[in-house]
């Protein structure tokens, strides 16, 4: 499946997330024809995205990406609308195969620094930054909304904070795109930054004044690349054991290839189906272990099948 997360501009600075258009639909309970129609529509969009992606790869990305992506987003929006118009009676209880399309723009921190001029009258950032008309923006990523000491926030932002609003790439992007829509009573009198690439650049610049994950591993991500590709016939997938062997090296950091277990269970010589089911239980966050949820969460179904095929036969 084409992924816009592959569209990362070469030669640019910090990566920032701008748009994550995730659209999902459930196929359970629908009749076959309808499902096939949706499939066809999805395939058409896939082909379009493929073409766009190929073109982007061909061209000098720095100059065309914003347009290309806007274009792609329009088509995605149209597709979303078509899906929204689907007939009632879809079984929501079964969160079945959901194609997820995630669109990400890389931000250029240098361009962002120039864009920050629009903000500088009210916001300071960097060494010695203090509150002004607006709060300072150091350590912004990952902090709770309305939480800078000694700054008087609007009730609107305080309410949002009480409801758990935190500033991350996605919430910040939404906020600066259209502040009044995001928080109607905000005192930030700024019309909004409509261009997705501009927001990516600005956020890439601001990101450099927050904790770096290499120093504080729990700090906010700088990439947004997970896309879980899902196939309706998970269990029927035939795994590629050679790919599985490569992927397994991630497992053997903790799980012993010899099958030994102390503190961490053995995973060798399981029936493939049990392996696949267990991995999906982590992926869907049904099983609780955080490490396994994280690892399984970014494995595609093909990758899980590949691992299952590899471990099922592992003799040492």
């Amino acid at each position: 499946m084409p992924r816009f997360s592959d569209v990362i501009l070469p030669g640019l600075g910090v990566t920032g997330l701008v748009l994550t258009g995730a659209l999902a639909f459930s196929t359970a309970g629908r009749d076959r024809a309808e499902f096939e129609a949706s499939e066809a529509a999805l395939n058409a969009v896939r082909a379009e995205l493929d073409a766009a992606e190929a073109r982007i790869a061909e061209l000098n990305l720095a100059t065309v990406t914003a347009e290309e992506l806007e274009d792609a987003m329009e088509r995605l929006a149209a597709f979303e609308a078509r899906l929204a118009a689907r007939p009632e009676g879809v079984d929501e209880a079964e969160p079945d195969p959901a194609p997820v399309v995630s669109v990400m723009l890389a931000g250029n921190a240098e361009t962002g620094e120039t864009l920050f001029r629009e903000c500088r009258a009210c916001h300071q950032v960097g060494a010695g930054a203090k509150n002004g008309v607006g709060p300072h923006l150091n350590l912004l990523f990952g902090r709770a909304a309305a939480s800078v000491p000694d700054f008087r926030y609007s009730d609107s932002l305080k309410r949002a904070a009480a409801n758990g609003l935190e500033w991350h790439a996605d919430t910040l992007s939404q906020y600066i795109e259209d502040p009044r829509t995001f928080a109607s009573g905000t005192r930030m009198s700024y019309a909004g930054m409509k261009d997705a690439q501009d927001r990516a650049d600005l956020l890439a610049y601001l990101r450099t004044f927050s904790d770096d994950p290499s120093n504080i591993p729990e700090a906010d991500p700088t990439a947004q690349g997970t896309d879980h590709e899902v196939d309706p016939e998970i269990l029927a997938l035939k795994g590629d054991p050679e790919y599985g062997e490569y992927l397994s090296s991630e497992c053997t950091t903790c799980h012993q290839a010899s099958g030994g277990d102390d503190g961490i269970p053995s995973i060798v010589l399981w029936p493939e189906e049990s392996f696949v089911m267990a991995m999906h239980a982590y992926k869907d966050q049904v099983r609780p272990n955080q490490v396994m949820q994280m690892i399984a969460g970014r494995l595609s179904n093909d990758e899980i099948a590949a691992l299952a095929a590899y471990f099922a036969d592992l003799e040492k």
Binding site: L9, G11, L12, V14, A106, E218, T226, R298
Partner: peptide, 12 residues
């Protein structure tokens, strides 16, 4: 990514 190894997702 072309620039660096970038954090995708995490927990604590």
């Amino acid at each position: 990514t072309p620039e660096k190894i970038a954090k995708v997702d995490g927990f604590i």
